[in-house]
């Protein structure tokens, strides 16, 4: 009951404070730009290299390159953008004092944390879908033989990766006292999950960082969706939920 009220407030806040333009706008921009960049790459390099200098010969770009570009952009810039926009979710409510009026009503702090996770996840899903549809459309126009199935699988791996980062940032925001501290904590977490796959086969297969490699492997058909990607994605989702539950427990014990 009160969860529905909280969730509606979050969605209206995203719409009314123009946050709806930030992540979806950035993702849409990458969705449109990535296929064009992939197509233009050889021409760009040719125009940049001086006449008589080193000749760079590249294989002609293919449809797959458009998605490689998209995944690269969103797994780096996209991730940072998610951290920066989600880090304030709870920390700012604590810092500014708006949380006090909410939790002094018959609302559990846990409910507050999970509605923040739900609304921000919805925003990430919307933005990623927007980016994918735009990239798919442009790739179909610019290149022959668009790998629809493979690119969709790759995008799903990307989406789960972004959702994990979002969940981790919500957890950080629940723990931290200020949004800067929350951002720092989430960035530290991001570095850890990026580095973990280096430490052996187990980590390379099962940690959320593995999803980055899986995006391109799914695209090229090197990895199987059911056998390789789904288990790793499931682990990432579970891990994200555990982090939010821990963050929520910490928030529950905090003084406001």
């Amino acid at each position: 009951m009160s969860r529905g009220v909280l969730f509606r407030k979050e969605i209206r806040e995203i719409l009314r404070t123009s946050r709806i333009y930030v992540i979806p706008g950035l993702f849409l921009f990458f969705g449109l730009l990535s296929p064009i960049t992939a197509k233009m790459m050889p021409q760009l390099l040719r125009s940049l290299s001086a006449p008589g200098g080193v000749q760079i010969t590249l294989p002609p770009p293919v449809a797959r390159d458009a998605f490689t570009q998209l995944f690269k952009n969103l797994a780096q810039t996209g991730v940072i953008a998610v951290i920066l926009t989600v880090m304030g979710a709870l920390a700012e409510e604590k810092n500014r004092g708006t949380a006090v009026l909410v939790v002094s009503k018959p609302v559990s702090r846990t409910a507050m944390v999970w509605t923040k996770l739900a609304s921000n996840s919805l925003l990430i899903i919307f933005a990623t879908a927007l980016a994918y549809v735009a990239a798919l459309y442009y790739t179909m126009i610019l290149f022959p033989g668009t790998p629809v199935r493979e690119s969709l699988f790759g995008t799903l791996a990307l989406l789960v990766y972004l959702l994990f980062v979002g969940a981790m940032t919500i957890a950080a925001s629940a723990v931290a006292r200020s949004q800067v501290a929350a951002g720092g904590l989430a960035l530290a977490g991001y570095f850890v999950i990026s580095l973990l796959p280096i430490f052996g086969r187990f980590f390379a297969k099962w940690t959320p960082g593995a999803l980055v490699g899986l995006q391109t492997d799914l695209l090229t058909g090197k990895a199987s969706m059911l056998k390789d990607a789904v288990p790793t994605m499931a682990v990432a989702v579970a891990l994200g939920l555990v982090l939010v539950a821990l963050g929520s427990a910490a928030f529950e014990r905090q003084e406001l």
Binding site: S18, G25, L28, L32, I36
Partner: peptide, 29 residues
């Protein structure tokens, strides 16, 4: 850059997105 002239139809959505974002931001600012 002949590419841009040739691909105006493709670049137009990017330009529109850009203009929409500028409009939203300025209307807030």
């Amino acid at each position: 850059m002949d590419f841009f002239r040739e691909n105006m139809a493709l670049l137009l959505p990017i330009v529109i997105l850009e203009l929409v974002l500028i409009a939203v931001a300025l209307r807030d600012l």
